[in-house]
Design a protein around this nucleic acid. Sequence first.
DNA 1: AATAATTTTTAGATTTGTCTAAATATTTAG
DNA 2: CTAAATATTTAGACAAATCTAAAAATTATT
Lengths: 218, 218
Amino acid sequence: MKFTEAEENYIKSIYHLQITHEKVSATLLSAAVNTRAASVTDMLKKLQLKKLVNYKPYQSFTLTDKGVKTALEIIRKHRLWEFFLVSKLGFNWDEVHDIAEELEHISSKELITRLDNYLGNPSFDPHGDPIPDKNGRIKQLKQKNLIETPLKKMATVSSIRDQSNEMLELLKHYNISIGTRLRINKRFEFDGSVEIKMEKVPAAILSEQVAKNIFCTI
Amino acid sequence: MKFTEAEENYIKSIYHLQITHEKVSATLLSAAVNTRAASVTDMLKKLQLKKLVNYKPYQSFTLTDKGVKTALEIIRKHRLWEFFLVSKLGFNWDEVHDIAEELEHISSKELITRLDNYLGNPSFDPHGDPIPDKNGRIKQLKQKNLIETPLKKMATVSSIRDQSNEMLELLKHYNISIGTRLRINKRFEFDGSVEIKMEKVPAAILSEQVAKNIFCTI
DNA sequence: AATAATTTTTAGATTTGTCTAAATATTTAG
DNA sequence: CTAAATATTTAGACAAATCTAAAAATTATT
Ligand SMILES: [Mn+2]
Ligand SMILES: [Mn+2]
Ligand SMILES: [Mn+2]
Ligand SMILES: [Mn+2]
């Protein structure tokens, strides 16, 4: 089935929100898709007709199985294109999101199959997020954020939760990216900040807010 | 300036039509963009407001300089993506048009600059059509169709005018593609058909209608 | 439990792009 | 040069996606 670009953006946003939030409300979604709650209500009715969401007026809503399947297809496309932009065209990881936001709506299935193979069937995008395979299956890493990572152990940065421009800018300044190896030297009770040590550079301090958003494998 | 997908499709179609036809009319354009003449009239008014077409009611119309510039940017994107699909993803030349029809509307300038470099700044797309450079300049080959190509001289297929699925299917059957070397053995006065000879295969006859649409360099 | 605050939905518009049917203009032919 | 045929434009509708303002429902607070 084919959906409009707007429908796809709504579906994808609901998917992301229902992973991070217990309940997804019209206001929450309206912020994610950059519209007003009234527009969300209109769209929810359309998505319900197409059996993509479970929705009853005045209640929070969820994606149907069909909705989840659709969301994973869009996310697959988004992340494969991001991988392409970084690995083949040499973009930085903080430059690719908006372009992938458009490319994810290109409809050809065959294109994505071929792109996937061309890229070597990658499992993770440039931000460390898993790329669903053709069946919608996702590889989940056992990862901990820098608050939970044990002290004095080498760890490898594997993903970033908050991917706002501000966050990616900060990471660029500290020279932290996916694959960066580091060790937690110390955690400060006072403000939750952590001191990290990377190769060849002096130790650095990250605020709790930043540390929470950086995930590592050990 | 940014345009909608519909506007871009109209602009591109007008560009192609005014190369092949002395006058571009509403009916002609309506067939090209797959709508009705009434819709064309509506769109022409919008494009005129944006200074993309020279249009007076009941008269044929042309692109302004700005319109031509815009058309060339879209065509550049279309053909670069076609080149990518064939050279990197291994598509056949008869499979790429519809996908490029969507990809040509992705807005990022930087993306196209990088794609162009990644592909080695190609001058011709998989159908032999010239790819405008970043300034909209086009390399024009001195080429003749198989009706005009002199007899008994080796020639190289350089482009195909009619790129319908039917035409590309026929060419695939004869194993003719861009770069194919051939010689005109004979031209038949009776029906305008031509006999061509390619390496390693028996001579073949092409109808005048087909021969007109295959262009060669010598 | 009643009231206040918040959230969600409806009502009514707007924009973009399309359509059909009817009106109008242009072109072609007798 | 008129009449018929053809092309183009207008009028009026519609679907998609959005908005603001107002109404209705839910949730929180005294
Ligand atoms: Mn998107
Ligand atoms: Mn990503
Ligand atoms: Mn297009
Ligand atoms: Mn082409």
